[in-house]
Design a protein around this nucleic acid. Structure first.
Lengths: 342, 342
DNA sequence: GCATCGAATGTTAGCGCTAGCATTTAAGGC
DNA sequence: GCCTTAAATGCTAGCGCTAACATTCGATGC
């Protein structure tokens, strides 16, 4: 009385349409349907059409869990960023995803919140989906992270920073050189009273150290520093600048660890009626789209977020496809964009 | 001479550690290892410890492709948003993901770029990973989208809007009532010359229509409207306001379809030396974190993005767990936050 | 002593797909 | 015509895991 068809059907039947169903309707073997989906060039035109018709007819949606299990290719790429709400990371991921989607990959994004512990747990969780590659932000990863990644045996691209010894390949720019370059820029502009409002993440701290060291090399010491909590936002920029000014920072120039901070500081300066750049000069970091349009417009450090995303994607794809690539340190560079604020 | 062990091993051996390996080392059957991972409360303390030790020893990483295939539970939730670079959507997703991660789910995010066609292709692609639930932005979906979603037979939560007839459940707020409320607010403030700078997505258009209709109901017509391209950004806000002003919009109030636009307009007003709010009053939308700290601070429409994310997550979880839930239209409400700009 | 029961563990049989061959078919060469 | 070769298609055997049921085991009651 039970469901005992001639070709006995499973007791766990899902009801949803499978590749076998499509194959039966099209009158071909299952593997042919699989080829239609994955390597259509290997199927005769007539068969192709027959199968595609059956697919359309049934509304068949392939099951990538099964496909991935069988082929050991999940067509999934994992990406770990500090925060999606911060548009600089979101932009990179947008471009990264776009390029990968065009090659048939999807991107699973996780937010580490700038925490190594969180990064560990994310990586561990995401590896259970057997991604074909992984995108990391930064080059500082815990020992466990490194062990997990090595064990996973998949391409890894680190981003937003540079190191001569990447896990696999790194796409980014030198925060040390940026710190130095901004210091030299401010000196060249004639500034001697210099301040810094900075977040406390690894990369901001590298810029800070290089910035202060380069200033010291030119005899400028006693830099006023204000640290702001992560994630950085507009208010933190206002508070950071207020902190400097309330502690006796007079006429001078301030370097901010993000454009968001600099934009907030712009508001604080306006509220205090300070003339920009004469009384107070500001330099941001990131060259966000709005930097050119604030009033006054914001001098900032530009680097190409789209390029990071795209080159990271390309690097992963070439590794997944076993192409010979010797380049494993990709520097996308940076430039200081001078505008009205400094 | 080949790899012919006694217990013959596959010719496709992956080299990575499997649940069976762990089982052998722990001296239990594979299903017991599976239970340790998924329902540890069903395993005796002694066995549990033995197995966990074997897992730690081998560095075993479970394979969710296999697990998902066998159990028909992918522990994956798909989310489609217009754009991740827009922090309002990113914030919602951050909270949505956080809550789901705590329940063992991961979120796969796709960007539709405000395009229905793109949404279709994303949904189609993502369904092949057999997500356990799906998060959509908005309530306008193509016929094919609806068909795909119904066919997938999984919980669907629509967000950022309201409808009496959701696909499954909707979490959002009424754009129509917002348009009306802002109109009434401006009228109550004594404004009669009123402008609008708006993006052209579905929801902004609903606000626009309701806004203009309510104004008309109070005898105010001839609203100056400037449309800006998607995605909205700072520059578009400047341009939009400039457009109104250059076309004869004098002293009055302008409603922007996002805070980003209003913030840009603030810069344009400052560049033109307009007194805010006396010569020009501005109302934004979204109450972004910076709105309270711009100079002058920005009057805006607040709604709780975290709440949308959290309630969307809760709604999906309760449906996945087959809990009885009658509530399928969840209104998170909104309020106009009055600040200096209007 | 033995039936009874619940807790712990194991066995069997797939989930839906694809790699790696094997086989069939079509196309050409002389 | 028959052989050779390439193109098209099919068969077998899993990928690594878990649902469903079966079994074992010890504790308990009478």
């Amino acid at each position: 009385m039970a469901t005992t068809g001639t070709t006995s059907s499973s007791n766990r039947a899902s009801g949803s349409i499978t590749l076998d169903d499509v194959a039966k309707i099209a009158g071909v073997s299952p593997i042919t349907v699989s080829r239609v989906l994955n390597q259509p060039e290997k199927v005769a035109a007539k068969t192709l059409e027959k199968v595609q018709h059956a697919i359309a007819l049934t509304g068949y949606v392939p099951n990538l869990l099964a496909g991935g299990l069988a082929s050991r290719k999940s067509r999934l790429i994992a990406a770990i960023v500090p925060s999606m709400a911060n548009s600089v990371y979101a932009e990179t991921i947008t471009f990264f995803s776009k390029l990968l989607r065009e090659s048939g990959y999807q991107v699973l994004v996780g937010e580490s919140g700038f925490s190594e512990k969180q990064e560990e747990s994310l990586i561990s969780a995401v590896l259970s989906r057997r991604p074909d590659g992984i995108f990391l932000t930064g080059i500082n990863h815990s020992a466990l992270c490194r062990r997990l990644l090595v064990g996973a045996n998949i391409p890894v691209v680190e981003t937003w920073d540079l190191t001569p010894t990447p896990l696999d390949v790194v796409v980014g720019f030198s925060h040390e050189r940026i710190g130095q370059a901004v210091a030299e820029y401010l000196i060249a502009k004639g500034h001697r009273n210099i301040g810094l409002v900075s977040a406390t993440d690894h990369r901001a701290q590298i810029r800070q150290r290089a910035f202060i060291e380069m200033l010291a090399k030119h005899g400028i010491t006693g830099i006023s520093v204000s640290h702001v909590p992560l994630p950085t936002n507009f208010k933190a920029g206002r508070d950071g600048l207020a902190d400097l000014l309330d502690n006796g920072f007079g006429k001078g120039a301030v370097f901010f660890s993000s454009d968001t901070l600099a934009q907030g500081a712009l508001a604080e300066a306006q509220a205090r009626n300070l003339a920009i750049p004469d009384q107070l000069a500001l330099v941001g970091f990131g060259d966000q789209p709005y930097a050119a349009y604030t009033y006054p417009s914001l001098t900032s450090v530009r680097f190409d977020r789209a390029e990071i995303g795209q080159r990271a994607a390309t690097a992963l794809l070439s590794r997944i496809n076993d192409e010979v690539t010797r380049e494993n340190v990709i520097d996308v560079g940076f430039e200081i964009v001078e505008r009205q604020s400094c």
